[in-house]
Design a protein around this nucleic acid. Sequence first.
RNA 1: GCCAGGGUAGCUCAGCGGUAGAGCAGGGGACUCAUAAGCCCUUGGUCGGGAGUUCAAUUCUCCCCCCUGGCACCA
Length: 539
Amino acid sequence: MPKTFFITTAIDYTNSPPHIGHAYEKVLADVIARYHRLKGDKVFFLTGADQHGQKVQQSAAKAGVPPNEFVKGITQKFVDLWKQLDVKYDEWAETTSERHKKVVQGILQRLFDAGQIYKDKQAGYYSVRQEQFLTDKERGADGQFGPEWGEIEFREEENYYFRLSQYKDWLLAYLSKRADAIIPDFRQIELRNAVDRLSGDLCISRPKSRLDWGIELPFDKEFVTYVWFDALTNYISFAGYDPKIDNYERQPQEFRDRWSKDTLQIIGKDILVPAHGIYWLIMLHAIGFPDAQMPQLLVHGWWNLGGAKMSKSAGNIIDPFVLIEKYSADALRYYLMSDIVTGQDADFSEERLIERYNSDLANNIGNLANRTLNMIGRYLPDRQLRRTEALFESQSPVAGLLHRLSQKEIARSVSYFKRDMDGFDISVANGMPINLTLYCNGVIEEAAPWNLSKQSGTESKTLLASVLYHIAETLRIIAILISPVLPKAAHGIFDQLNWKMELSGGEQRFSLADAEWGRLPDGHVVGKPVPLFPRIEGT
RNA sequence: GCCAGGGUAGCUCAGCGGUAGAGCAGGGGACUCAUAAGCCCUUGGUCGGGAGUUCAAUUCUCCCCCCUGGCACCA
């Protein structure tokens, strides 16, 4: 059953424009999605925008435009960013769409009919200014609610509740059954602890008098559903889920092809508990998903700034558009994928971005491509490669070094790359193509083609051709390995090498199956060098 | 307070029982095909602190300190 690889990200809240954290999550998902395409998997990558809710309603009112217009504007900024960042998704989720609304309402109606949703009365302190009920968490050091909440009043309000707590035992059982439900594993422990303490049901509605920018409850038009059943449902509503069918096995083929236990949902650490780890998994269970079809959650960390959290109020938001403009999409993608350990937090630093770009991309990959193509142009007639392995027979010290670029060693590098990518250790996997450039540079230094070219005799000519073939061939494999993170540069290398689709015989330009030594044919004519990564000078 | 994760070279991290490693940054050198890139050599650490187990601890155990996250609680 080679299913589609289904990958999702959190959908972004259209209350304010995107920052670097949004960019990181989507690039991470995009890189994993591209890696799967590289392996030949069919991929369904879903991302989108969360457009309902109180904060949107408030921000729209503040801006003096209707919510739907406000949402359109912000959503466009996200769409623009993904385009500029080469984030290539297969489906775009917008929670205001009709398609989504139908699924949400269908699910709610089904759960309501089954007695899983009930109406109850809530009483408590309510901030008129913030339009929300206050809990003890909001109390200040003196036990009182601070002035930031404005006028406080005691209120009673009726709402609908989902019987969350009755699923607690199921969730605990599921988590103990599946060790890799959450990645990294310490997050699973955290989640487990949180589930242990779970009590009470989940409020899923807001009276329209308080919030009307949302999806109406199908069984009570005085209410809209509040965040959970709206936002979380996107993961299935845009994947072909039929809300009328309560049995996973009878869901449309299209949906079942996509959704499985291997479905990878990428989220930030702030929304594991309780949103995804508790509410979402329980929701799926409640609407009929078997344990064998529970998705896997990949929880990433945050980019901090000088050790401090990035936040709008602190005024230390990093604007991804500015960085792309300044350094290019590939540069930003590379930095975001290489200077963080998946799951951990990292510190964002523009200096580090420049450092990594210059040393890894400009000085290693870019320069290697440049010098190789330049030497081929200078030293080989008509820019034509000659495939020969004669060097292995040679007594030359170059032979020893060249061994690292042999079929066997390349295969070993590719297998390390796969191992690390499969484990989501993107930054470690990035090290493989960089290592290959180091080997290439070592071989070039040892062989010194500029000296060989001055010598006459067939042996030095053969040696020269062999070295350049090996380097060109390794460069081609480097391009494949960097393609998930650096799609533009990978295309650039392929273009300059003149590597054509016909040569691979595959359907995609980049394929891991092509990352095998010796695919460049004898007599292959390469193109001319064009700098891939111009160095970033000064600051 | 409880549950996790972390504290190793200036920076980012690997190692996790046998007298400390990588990349980058810093210093020096030989070369020239190249984006003054690359290559070679090199400076630099009492592996957070203390105690214990062991022939031997960065690596295991215990205590403590600091950072990060989650949860809870008091005022």
